[in-house]
Write a protein that binds this DNA or RNA. Structure first.
Length: 985
DNA sequence: AGCGCGACCTAA
DNA sequence: TAAGTTAGGTCGCGCT
């Protein structure tokens, strides 16, 4: 189209990007595909019963529809009943097939009522009313369609030339060879700005959209081919981007929607577009009555809709939000991707950009955005630039994290549509694979009622042998025999158990009498450690072992292919696939134990963990009986940590390998114990908590500090605590300098108590996991979220958000949850930080846990928490810190702090030093000004403009906090200077 | 003060 | 309607 330079020629390739969750009506129409499920036929059923049953079902469905809302009614609900002979995957029937009825219906939404009616019982002709248990009635329609068509997610589909009005079956290509790569998908990233009212989060009912930036990129290309900003009112030109200005908001919206249809992206991305930008635009367009706006999808006549959605899983917690449908396009919200894929302290675009791209971005408060809009073409240019950057960043993140390739490969490996990976949980991926495997073996998946049963026993964690630690090494003069630590791991233990015992899905739960009926002898089944009986793989291979086997076999193939492949793009795809295969294999065990799940099988979960417990126990015994000098000091699930008395890392590795090999000989192949790494030194705090200097593979390469479960790797403390623990561990373990570690800790503690720690280091974040009323006891972050909600409901943290807070000083004995405060608010209001809280509740215990094994109990306490460094230098805090607000009310002498009866600077006693004191305060001003200007220009660089004001107030940027603090100190200092009046000398 | 329990987050 | 598992440490609250 004209006006958009760099527009690529239309691709000759027709793309079908998997099946999006929204596009099924198209598939239904084109493919002539209709959903179906099965029910188990009652005894005595036959061909003759199908016709009356069909009539009965059709009539029952019609009756239901009459009561409900009169949506589109197909001429026929039931598309036919067929008798089939199959087996269920659940239970072992000795190969005997049962009679099922395949029930075809005309629309996906008829599956549920049809299933319910049949399950409850309909009249089967002369057999009377019979209940019929359903099979495969809970399979998502898209999964059903793709399984039947042999398509996986994101695979290439070849269409006959000359149009595709009338097809037979779709021709999908396995994503290999020539069909390995990704198509040149078009990505569109966008961001909007709204002119909110002061202090209130923008609302589509009132606040206008003033700018929309859009950046389009072709997958694989380095640079976007299109950068456009749509602005309300004039905007000065931008370099490298097209500016489209409109006088009315209606035109702006209309034009943007038109633009989306022209660009016709396969993937729409952005940051928080699901919950903010997209719903905002659509609701705003509704308010302004822009009728043509919501047709943002690819299906003609089907508008995008805003729906409320709630998602809950144990993994991701409960999340509520909005979903915007956009048929035919994948909406890839980078925020959702990051929430699922990465555990971070903060998910603001700001924090995320800093973390992954090592670059800060401005964060302009809403109020100022409105001011910029109300300025002139130049201020609006600034706004446009800001907006453009926010549209750009998600694309950069997408590229850096290889999000698209990763998702595409996951969709291919697990055979689900790409959109499922962003909106659904883990189970659906296993179900999709299971269904395909079952279809190959002519087996059916039952619909199991998930009833919350009792929990099952999990893995063993070996009680750690504490009291041994780095001090063994540090106190030993070099050259002496020192303890080395070696980790031995059963790699992929649960995979092997699942695959090689064939536990899925044939279970014998019957009596000996029944075995003889099935002609099974004792050699035909195994009894697992938890007492469940399964037929051996020789009798019948389970369905899931096959799925798992397939994943593992594919993984070996990919490994081999990677060794050969040179092309970087194909390598990237293969890397992505390798990861996807591993992740999928790992989620299989969890699936079987998902009690609130689709197809749980606790017998299997129990048996797997049972085998695991047996194996770790046996491993420990074997090691210690054969090698008296090797001591198993710890172990978790599938690994044992051994203490070896050898003098070097290579020798520790060699011994580790020897032990592993010897132990492996005592397990049935392919279960193997493998040597993994050497730790030196190693600090074992407790179960699931340790740190060590890790020589991976026992190599002489650069060792890495490995930290498990300690505060250093947890997100529910303040960065100060995490950083301090890390720093101390580095000094102790890497530099072998415990004294240096102590000194550093003392210094930080002193800094904290003297208010020299930047507030960004003190921000604690915790996830809001439920509604405030659902908590049984008050919590700091919950209480703050509630207070924020009262201040401004629009911008308050929602369910699933992480709430950042600091603890400020309060009355004596006031609980912490009443003293939690928004860090920016605390800074702006000069609220005093409760540094004692941070020392006593955030730093002391984690530090003691690390130092006690090294210094001894009493000494650690004395050295860290009772030294001179814990004495607060009040002089400094009273002046520049939180108390400065009070000092101006009742003046005290700047020289000796004595209270003054007047508002001057010094008391009579200090009068003769006044000049000297004045000079000191002036130089303090000079220092503050210097730091301020340094920070200011740093912020200017970040906003890539050295000529303009800094507007940023990012609560995720330490520079911001420092800049504001210095600014406040400077103001206070100037105020103080004023008290000297005009000097007389 | 000590204990039980809920909440959070992590290891595997 | 859909939602991977259990084991484990630590901290704050509220009760005794």
């Amino acid at each position: 189209p004209r006006g958009f330079p760099g527009w690529p020629h239309p691709s000759p390739i027709l793309r079908m990007f998997g099946v999006t969750g929204e596009g099924h009506s198209v598939c239904l129409h084109l493919h002539g595909f209709s959903p179906y499920f099965y029910v188990l036929a009652p005894p005595g059923a036959g061909e003759a019963h199908l016709e009356p049953l069909e009539r009965e079902l059709e009539a029952a469905l019609r009756r239901e529809q009459r009561g409900g809302n009169p949506k589109f009614q197909p001429p026929k609900n039931v598309l036919g009943l067929t008798l089939v002979r199959k087996q269920s995957i659940l239970g072992f029937q000795g190969g005997l097939q049962s009679l099922f009825v395949r029930v075809g219906v005309s629309l996906p939404r008829l599956v549920a009522p049809a299933r319910r009616l049949l399950e409850r019982g309909l009249r089967w002709g002369n057999l009377g009313v019979q209940p019929a248990p359903p099979f495969e009635a809970n399979i998502d329609f898209e999964i059903r369609f793709m399984a039947d068509s042999g398509l996986v997610g994101c695979c290439w589909v070849e269409l006959p030339p000359g149009g595709f009005r009338c097809w037979g079956a779709l021709r999908g290509h396995p994503p290999e060879g020539a069909w390995l790569g990704l198509p040149p998908l078009r990505l569109l990233s966008f961001d909007i700005e709204c002119a909110g009212r002061k202090g209130v989060f923008p609302e589509p009912q009132q606040d206008p959209v003033i700018a929309i930036a859009a950046v389009a990129l072709r997958q694989g290309a380095r640079e976007p081919f299109l950068r456009v900003v749509f602005t309300l009112r004039s905007c000065a030109a931008l370099r490298g981007a097209t500016v489209r200005s409109f006088e009315s908001e209606r035109e702006l919206l209309q034009s943007w929607a038109e633009f989306v249809r022209i660009v016709d992206p396969d993937v729409v991305t952005g940051y928080n577009i699901h919950n903010f930008d997209l719903p905002y635009l659509i609701q705003r367009a509704q308010v302004l009555q822009v009728e043509s706006f919501p047709y943002l999808g690819r299906v003609r006549g089907v508008p995008s809709q805003v729906r409320d959605s709630a998602f809950q899983s144990r993994q991701l917690g409960r999340r509520e939000g909005k979903v915007v449908t956009s048929p035919g396009r994948v909406t890839l919200d980078m925020l959702q991707v990051l929430l699922r894929e990465h555990k971070l302290r903060s998910y603001s675009l700001n924090a995320v950009s800093a973390h992954f791209l090592h670059e800060q971005k401005e964060d302009v408060p809403h109020g100022i955005i409105t001011e910029l809009q109300n300025g002139d073409a130049q201020t609006r240019r600034r706004l446009a630039l800001y907006c453009l950057k926010d549209a750009m960043l998600p694309l950069r993140l997408l590229e850096r994290l290889m999000t698209l390739v990763t998702l595409v490969e996951m969709a291919r490996v697990t055979a689900v549509p790409l959109s499922y990976l962003l909106t659904r949980g883990q189970q659906v991926k296993v179900v999709a694979q299971l269904l395909r495997q079952a279809m190959q073996e002519d087996l059916l998946l039952p619909v199991v009622k998930s009833e919350g049963g009792e929990d099952f026993e999990g893995a063993t964690v070996i009680e750690p042998l504490k009291g041994l630690g780095p001090q063994d090494f540090i106190r030993t003069p070099t050259g002496q025999l020192s303890p080395y630590w070696s980790i031995l791991v059963h790699t992929g233990l649960y995979w092997f158990i699942l695959v090689h015992t064939g536990l899925y899905w044939f279970i014998l739960v019957y009596t000996g009498l029944y075995w003889s009926l099935l002609r099974l002898g004792p050699q035909d089944f195994i009894r697992t450690p938890t007492g469940q009986l399964f037929v051996t793989p020789r009798v019948r291979r389970g369905v899931l072992p096959r799925v798992l086997e397939g994943l593992l076999a594919a993984r070996s193939r990919v490994k081999a292919a990677l060794a050969e492949e040179q092309d970087p793009e194909r390598r990237q795809v293969l890397d992505g696939r390798q990861l996807a295969l591993k992740v999928s294999a790992n989620s299989v065990y969890g699936f079987t134990g998902a009690q609130a799940g689709r197809l749980p099988c606790l017998e299997i979960s129990q048996s797997v963990t049972g085998f695991g417990r047996q194996m770790i126990e046996k491993t420990k015994q074997l090691v210690e009986s054969e090698y008296p000098d090797v001591q198993v000091v710890y172990g978790d699930t599938d690994s044992v940590m051994c203490r070896l008395k050898v003098p070097s890392v290579p020798e520790a590795a060699a011994l580790g390998r020897a032990v592993a090999t010897w132990v492996s000989g005592h397990f049935p192949p392919p279960i193997r114990l493998e040597f993994e790494k050497v730790y030196l030194p190693y600090l074992l705090i407790s179960k699931k908590r340790y740190a060590g200097l890790c020589f991976s593979g026992g190599s002489g390469g650069t060792p890495k500090l490995d930290c498990k479960g300690l505060e250093a790797v947890r997100r529910d403390n303040c960065p100060l605590a995490a950083n301090l623990v890390t720093a101390c561990l580095r000094r102790i373990l890497l530099h072998r300098d415990p004294q240096g570690a102590v000194a550093h800790a003392q210094e930080v503690i002193s800094d904290l108590l003297c208010n020299r720690i930047d507030i960004s280091q003190l921000v604690i974040t915790k996830e809001l996991t439920r509604a405030a009323s659902a908590y049984s006891a008050p919590q700091a972050h919950v209480a703050l979220a509630e207070r924020l909600r009262r201040r401004d409901p629009g911008s308050a943290p929602g369910l699933g958000d992480r709430v950042p807070y600091v603890i400020v000083s309060g009355a004596r004995g006031q609980p912490a949850y009443e003293r939690s405060e928004d860090p920016v608010f605390a800074l702006e209001q000069n609220l005093p930080i409760d540094t004692r809280y941070y020392l006593e509740q955030q730093l002391s215990r984690p530090l003691l846990r690390i130092f006690e094994p090294i210094l001894g109990e009493g000494r650690a306490q004395a050295v860290l928490l009772q030294g001179e460094h814990t004495r607060c230098k009040t002089l400094l805090t009273a002046r520049s810190g939180a108390l400065s607000a009070f000092t101006s009310k009742r003046s005290s002498c700047i020289g000796c702090r004595a209270l003054l009866p007047h508002h001057g600077a010094v008391c009579d006693f200090c009068r003769q030093r006044e000049s000297e004191l004045y000079q000191k305060e002036v130089s303090q001003v000079w220092h503050l000004e210097r730091s301020f200007s340094r920070l200011w220009s740093q912020c200017q660089r970040c906003q890539s403009s050295l000529l303009q004001d800094v507007l940023c107030s990012s609560r995720d940027c330490p520079i911001f906090y420092m800049r504001r603090k210095v600014q406040k100190d400077l103001e206070a200092q100037l105020e103080l200077l004023r008290r000297f009046g005009t000097p007389q000398w």
